[in-house]
Design a protein around this nucleic acid. Structure first.
Lengths: 120, 120
DNA sequence: CATTTGGATCGACAGCCGTCAATATAGATA
DNA sequence: TATCTATATTGACGGCTGTCGATCCAAATG
């Protein structure tokens, strides 16, 4: 399994600007289907806090080691939630030396906000 | 922002403005717990479309009879999704005569957008 | 009253989700 | 090489969720 390389990242994930505010005109089934997974990733209190911790962290990035301590959850559980956020395109992941750093993909977040909020 | 839009409101329902943008400072566990249910309600393609259909409808309200036809789902399923949106505080429900009308609770939606988006 | 109609509720089922302990992997260090 | 440390993966478990058919309720109408 070890793909001796490249395990390091290049997250693709659909980055369509997608979707005007949902109050403007009815979403198509496709638009809804493309946005729901991102909202699903956000729809958990632990993941909301994780995202917030990363976003509000100095330099806009945070090491997993910093994140684990903020919760009363096991390390695998935090790792799982980070994977979900990463998979949804909301977090970027970078390994530097021993540690792994996450960073908020702010365009993705802004996309969701626009969908719900109207303005930006 | 302490002014209230009071004219429209009589409903209790904890409507805390809640939560500055999550990019500004780390959410507390309580803040995250209070926002997650709303995001959970939004995190489904059918519910996203339902909300959008209601919001984009003339007069800002829509009758269930209009909504059922937009989906290939059973009437109980649509009813269930509307209940979820209503329970999350995203839709208002009003029965007039034979029909039931739903209306978007735009402050609730704006709250979520602010949480994610930063600006308003 | 009985009938019809719009909508909600109930009960069941399959699939997904959050969590954990155990284990694996990759770097760094000795 | 062996070993420690930081994260990720695996496998399992209970609980939640989306969907349906069947049923119930309430309002309108005969």
């Amino acid at each position: 399994m070890s793909n001796s390389e490249a395990v390091l990242e290049l997250t693709p994930v659909n980055e369509a600007p997608c979707c005007p505010p949902l109050t403007k005109q009815p979403l198509t089934a496709d638009q809804a289907a493309s946005m729901a997974p991102m909202l699903k990733a956000l729809a958990d209190p632990v993941r909301l806090r994780l995202l917030s911790l990363v976003a509000a962290h100095a330099d806009g990035e945070a090491c997993v080691c910093n994140l684990n301590d903020a919760f009363d959850l096991s390390q695998p559980t935090i790792s799982h939630h980070l994977k979900v956020l990463h998979g949804a395109g909301l977090l970027d992941r970078e390994k530097r030396g021993t540690w792994v750093y996450y960073r908020v993909r702010s365009e993705a977040l802004a996309n969701v906000a626009t969908l719900l909020g109207g303005a930006a």
